[in-house]
Design a protein around this nucleic acid. Structure first.
Lengths: 239, 239
DNA sequence: GTCTATAGTGCGATAGAC
DNA sequence: GTCTATCGCACTATAGAC
């Protein structure tokens, strides 16, 4: 799948996401009209992610946010009860979308090697579409409360387990050689994370997300493929 | 080389580091007696790194630091001119030590495959010995001033270039297959960074730094080794 | 629904006593 | 060399006008 196809398929504009958030948090949001509410939420989240990307969520003051959105302090406080809640909404939404997208992208891909490729590609594409959310989730976790940290860690381990299971399955079928699947999954995850943590580097070098995905897949497969036992009729290494 | 040997060889106790810092910053430090100065610097840097690890440098207040060190606000300000300078000292010392150690560990290892193994191992061991410094440098870069960010980026690219050169050399000698060395170097760096960014994960799983190093080396070598052209008498894959 | 004004808190930094 | 006391500022959050 190309990045363009993915982008079109998942439909994750900030507006879509904020409509979700508006409906999901109707209890705590004081504004009732969806039109107005969603418009301002888009504004607020864009500004929050932009400022957090630049200087960190901690360092971003409500005054900064007020200036960036064009909304007054008072107006902001009618959309969330304080910085803490704003943080929570962003984390929850990011985790939710990641679960949803990864599951929908993988539910019809069972063959281990294809599944590994699809998982790598989907995760990279998703982190590209939602770059600010992913970067935010990674860099701000340390500032979360104990319980929110736990949630973030569970999210991380969930994704890692997904890769570990694929590797185990592939080993069972003889596609991959015997190795430590958990450690391999951790290394794969590190490579996926590097894409959204160091985007400045890849951007500067003119490396796009598809090229990066192709390269990671090739590198990982070369590292774990089983070239001792025979490969019965497989189109090894093609894509 | 084992981690124990490395640790003994490099001699990087906080006291050694702080003696370096005390002498290097004699101009701005108001305290003149080395005994007192170094003792308090050890205290200050341990506390700063501890608090930064827990909640981030930004979020750490001078009052937190005063409480943790047992020194008064006034006393702290006679060791550095403000938070900004404290930040700068930590960054500079980290970069300096990394350059020194990597160079001394690699200067006598010329054969590409051995050199790659030594580079991976040294970097992981160093990040283990100086974990708080590495974690700090990574997580706080975004809060640096423009010029300090530039310095941090140069440090990152310098290390990456070191790996890229080894890979190119190994390819020239026919040990490694033709591939994109710059991208491969970036992936290796991502794996090295994961060790100090996610230590909680590896620690929880009982994975030590030597095991991680062995695994990364094995994984990388499997991913790039040349198994098409012949390997003239090499003891391929041994260590 | 959005604004302005302000209360109350905690910050970085310094002056001057000891 | 270290302490206590304090200044001026920026912050989060809220109250009440429009």
């Amino acid at each position: 799948m190309t990045f363009r196809e993915f982008r079109k398929l998942v439909e994750l504009s900030t507006e879509d996401i904020c409509t979700d958030i508006f409906r999901g948090n109707a209890a705590s949001i004081k504004i009732k009209k969806e039109r107005v509410g969603v418009r301002n939420l888009v504004n607020i989240f864009n500004a929050t992610l932009k400022l957090s990307l630049e200087k960190g969520f901690q360092a971003m003051s409500m005054r900064d946010l007020s200036r960036e959105t064009g909304l007054s302090m008072g107006a902001l406080y009618s959309y969330f009860s304080g910085k803490e809640e704003l943080l929570e909404i962003i984390q929850n939404q990011g985790l939710l979308i990641t679960y949803r997208v990864m599951q929908s992208q993988l539910e019809n891909v069972k063959e281990p090697r294809e599944r590994l490729r699809a998982a790598v590609r989907s995760h990279l594409y998703l982190s590209e579409v939602m770059h600010p959310w992913f970067y935010f989730a990674y860099m701000e976790t340390r500032n979360f409360s104990r319980e929110k940290q736990k949630k973030a860690i569970q999210g991380e381990l969930h994704t890692e387990k997904l890769f570990e299971d694929i590797l185990e399955q592939g080993r069972g079928e003889g596609s991959y050689r015997a190795t430590n699947s958990q450690l391999t999954a951790a290394l794969i995850k590190a490579m996926l994370q590097d894409w959204y943590l160091k985007r400045w580097k890849y951007s500067r070098r003119g490396v796009g997300v598809e090229q990066y995905a192709d390269f990671v897949i090739e590198f990982v497969e070369a590292g774990i493929k089983n070239d001792v036992s025979g490969n019965m009729g497989g189109d090894h290494g093609s894509n």
